[in-house]
């Protein structure tokens, strides 16, 4: 049962991560791949508050989410003020820099990571309820983002993404909206981090690097960018598939390459054969094409 719990737990966490990432990159059009660093901030903050200050887990997890949210605002404010593309550079720099700092500080456990983080133990029967709470939070995240994107505020987000100049010309504060989108997405990633830390009770900086960014991007692309259910499906499928492969008892000579090409192969296949993903908003790339035509038409 523990194995199933862990699998459901990871799926629920990736649902939170992938949907919040899609909110930032798909709906908001904010090009950033540093989502895992906010996952890390939430995880480390929550773990250290519980480990070093004895903060109860139900308080430590939201605290991790709040710190991740504040950190994202600190990254977004200066980078979005210059230009949207700078967010990509600033966020990657922030991701790599922060992970490097975590590796080199003793109080974060260094590169070896933190272990025996206070959490629910399987023996006390706490894993079941914890998984249920995480699944409920994942459902809550999906419903929250569905509500936002379907509301008038969501239409404003779409307008901002499609033409920020026209949006600003209508008297709306586009930059604050971008900061808000980035902060909400990152705060949700921080929440997932806190939930992860107290279940698996081990954190290492290597878990939050560029490979994690690639995995999240794959979930969003395969599931369907700019759709609510696409990233959910992407997260579930891409978390279950590698586990299913291990049950085939394939020889390592076959298993290694299979696992290696699974993520990259899926991205390539979907980019060419079904760019909108399994459940994609049909205008994902069309919107880009329209924008490009418009940019070319500009004097």
């Amino acid at each position: 049962m523990e194995y199933v719990y862990a699998l459901i737990m990871l799926m629920a966490l990736y649902v939170i991560l992938a949907t919040s990432f899609d909110f930032v990159i798909g709906y908001g059009g904010l090009i950033s791949i540093a989502h895992p660093v906010f996952y890390a901030i939430g995880a480390y903050t929550s773990a250290l508050l519980a480990l070093d200050f004895g903060l109860p887990i139900p308080l430590a997890i939201p605290a991790g989410a709040v710190v991740a949210l504040l950190a994202s605002v600190a990254v977004a404010l200066p980078s979005l003020r210059i230009s949207g593309d700078y967010l990509l550079i600033a966020s990657i720099g922030f991701q790599l820099g922060l992970l490097e700092a975590i590796k080199n500080m003793a109080w974060t456990g260094g590169s070896g990571g933190l272990t025996n983080i206070p959490g629910v133990s399987a023996q006390s029967g706490g894993h079941g309820p914890y998984v249920v709470v995480t699944v409920l939070l994942a459902i809550g995240t999906v419903l929250l983002l569905r509500w936002i994107t379907g509301s008038s505020y969501g239409r404003a987000i779409s307008a901002l993404r499609d033409d920020d100049m026209a949006f600003s010309a209508l008297g709306r504060n586009g930059m604050m909206m971008k900061v808000g989108i980035f902060a909400l997405g990152s705060g949700l990633a921080g929440l997932a981090g806190g939930l992860y830390a107290h279940y698996f009770r081990f954190l290492a900086p290597g878990q939050f690097g560029i490979m994690q960014s690639a995995a999240l991007l794959t979930m969003v692309v395969v599931g369907g960018m700019r759709s609510i259910w696409g990233p959910v499906l992407g997260a579930v499928v891409l978390e279950a598939l590698p586990q299913a492969i291990t049950f085939l008892n394939l020889p390592p000579s076959l298993l290694g390459p299979l696992q290696g090409i699974l993520f990259t192969g899926l991205v390539l296949v979907f980019m060419f054969a079904r760019p909108q993903g399994l459940i994609g908003g049909g205008d994902v790339w069309r919107g880009r094409a329209v924008r490009e035509v418009r940019d070319v038409a500009r004097p």
Partner: peptide, 30 residues
């Protein structure tokens, strides 16, 4: 972590062997 969860909860082994310091550390709570 996933492997050891499977060994402990699906296969229900009383003992498992592993190596590489980060993995050893990560699966210790389990």
């Amino acid at each position: 972590i996933q492997d050891v969860n499977r060994l402990v909860s699906v296969n229900k082994v009383p003992v498992f062997v592993t190596a590489w310091s980060e993995v050893v550390k990560a699966v210790a709570p389990i």
